[in-house]
Amino acid sequence: MNFIQRFFYLKNKNVVEIYKYCTISTNSLDSIHKNEIESPKDYNQAPLVLNNIDFSNIRPALRPTFNLASYVNESSSLQKLVKLGVELYKFDNKPDIMSTILKLDFERDMKQYIQFVFDCGVPADCLGKFFTKNPMIFTEHIDDLNTRINYLKYKNFTKEMISFILQKHPKWLSHSTIDIDASLGFFQSQFYLSGDDIRNITVKLPKLITWSKSNVHLIIFSLNEEMGFNRSERKRLLLIYPKIYIMSKHHLLQRFIYIHETMGINHDRIVLEPKILSCRLNRIKHRHEYLKYLNKDQYNPTKPQYVSLSNIFEGTDPEFCVNIAKTSVEMFNTYLKTVY
Rank of each mutant, 00 (worst) to 15 (best):
E273H: 08
F3Q: 15
K159R: 11
S25T: 08
N2Y: 06
R283Y: 05
L281C: 01
F320G: 02
F191K: 09
H33E: 03
N266S: 09
R6V: 13
P304A: 01
N230R: 01
N14L: 13
N230E: 08
E107G: 08
S28N: 14
D109G: 02
N14M: 02
T23N: 11
S163V: 04
N150Q: 13
S31N: 11
Q5L: 14
Q167R: 12
T139Y: 00
E87W: 00
L88C: 07
F320W: 04
T177V: 10
F116Q: 03
F229C: 09
P135Q: 03
S310C: 05
K11S: 09
N333Q: 11
F3W: 05
S214G: 02
N323G: 00
T177H: 02
N333D: 06
S77R: 06
M98H: 03
H286C: 08
Y306A: 01
L205D: 05
S77K: 10
I114G: 07
L193T: 03
Q298I: 13
Y19K: 15
E225A: 15
F164M: 07
T316R: 13
F191S: 04
N51T: 03
M263L: 14
N134H: 11
N93H: 12
N215D: 14
F130H: 00
I246C: 05
Y258D: 00
